[in-house]
Design a protein around this nucleic acid. Structure first.
Lengths: 272, 272
DNA sequence: CGCCTGAAATTTACGATGTATACGTACATT
DNA sequence: AATGTACGTATACATCGTAAATTTCAGGCG
């Protein structure tokens, strides 16, 4: 019962502080990397664990992510990872968090341009809608940059309750809610609109990533899509439209749909 | 090299024919169930495997589904399942297929009422929109009846290319496309509209199933949602709106949003 | 300097999982 | 009754997540 009194994992939970003291100094060099080596490239850290995991998943897919494999990728035994993520599930949640951190980065770096189109003529806020679009586009970009991680967005969203999500995740949701409030929506309407927005964002990303390609190396389009194996006369519409479905909707499809989805909830005209 | 010449798994692929000849007769009884017992309750079949798997997942969650566990649920060794599903992934695809079969059932049984509101006055088809709503509602019902399977809808959709999907899946998609064609959309518009519809359906279901409850047994609502663990002043909007978010949008939220999502693509007025 | 302490990473071990391969067995057809 | 074949079992293996104990390292203190 007197377990875990000392030797507690440092940042296994959602603790923000990094467990390495001098973050980037290539330390452990003093001894000339003699024994045990402490990982291939200096000490471990939650950040290093997560970013390496993200690279691995991007490169080889979700199923390639195992504790041992990630460990070896970091030059470390599997069990060493348990200091930085409480378990595999926590690691996956960490990947989701990493995506949201990247989203935040993307949003921040794109923030210093055309600071404010200083309110046209009416009493309408001009800012909130374009801000929402900006968020949507950035979300789309992040998702397309890490398609292998996208399933986790759905999976973990159904697994970890809102209140337990990483701050990076919550803050993205808070951003959207703030914009909806700026649009003048009262609390109940904002809740409905928020659900619509998040449903659309997620659904659109999934729809756009939908696996269409059956045989990637085939030069002929129809064969690439595997059309020949679709029962020809049973699904004529589907067969006819598959090539068009294989194109991506892109970010503008996202923002257009976003306006449409928002339309029932906001007072003003949708676009102009 | 000369492997698998005989003894091929019968229906492991997407083969439709059932491998048992007399489907429901409680066969194998002639010998008085002497030796080996052939499973606890008569022979195996793809249908039995899938429906048992579905029950198991509904009851204990996706992570409870393992080959051995499902085997023992059927009174059979794990390897026996490989005659009916080529592997675990194929089994998961089978679960998705089962959901679509249930969708089909639900649609068929609800079909014999108010056969046709016989075209009001104009040249507009009145039927396609309400049919789409019907499909949406049925989809919602199926998803809510099997929430543990819903993640698979996303996961497998990104994993198996359209042309390889089960007929039950394809036919559901074909249905939607047929309705869009009936609405007068040309091919390209129909493709865009179809993407919007499927994105919305999927996203809405996910949004509505989003895990909000942190501590189910708590009588106080705020505690049940885990609000106390959400950094209070960092996410004020989110915190204020969480209780409203905990309510489900329900099927009417789905159909309303569906109309909104469709609005940019269809010619006529949205509702009337 | 050498020791000590707590943190970081390793070692070892266990049970569970997916599945390849080989084998048995019962049934339907002849 | 013989036989071929569909169906299920038996055995085995590599890999997985992770609990527990152990070793190794870094740095503050005498």
């Amino acid at each position: 019962m007197a377990r875990r009194k000392r030797d507690e994992p440092a940042g296994a939970g959602r603790d923000e502080r990094a467990p390495n003291r001098s973050a980037d100094h290539a330390q452990g060099r003093r001894t000339g990397r003699r024994a045990a080596d402490h990982g291939r490239y200096g000490r471990l850290s939650r950040e290093r664990v997560l970013s390496t995991a993200l690279e691995l998943v991007d490169r080889e897919g979700l199923s390639a992510l195992s504790m041992r494999r990630l460990g070896s990728e970091l030059g470390v035994e599997a069990m060493a990872l348990y200091r930085y993520a409480a378990g595999k599930d926590a690691l996956l949640d960490g990947l989701v968090e990493a995506l949201y951190l990247e989203l935040r980065e993307r949003l921040d770096e794109g923030a210093e341009e055309g600071a404010r189109p200083p309110a046209k003529g009416g009493a309408e806020e001009p800012g909130w809608r374009s801000e929402l679009h900006r968020i949507a586009r950035a979300t789309y970009q992040v998702a397309m940059a890490h398609p292998e991680v996208v399933p986790l967005l759905a999976t973990r969203m159904l697994a970890v309750p809102l209140a337990r999500r990483a701050p990076a995740v919550l803050s993205a949701q808070e951003d959207i809610l703030r914009l909806l409030a700026a649009a003048g929506l009262d609390e109940d309407t904002a809740a409905a609109a928020y659900r619509a927005v998040s449903a659309w964002l997620l659904g659109y990303v999934f729809a756009d990533l939908q696996a269409m390609v059956d045989n990637p190396d085939e030069p002929e389009a129809a064969f690439r899509l595997g059309l020949y194996r679709m029962p020809a006369h049973d699904f004529p519409e589907l067969r006819a439209i598959t090539p068009a479905l294989a194109e991506r909707g892109g970010p503008q499809g996202l923002t257009e749909g976003l306006d449409a989805v928002l339309d029932p909830w906001v007072p003003g005209p949708p676009q102009d």
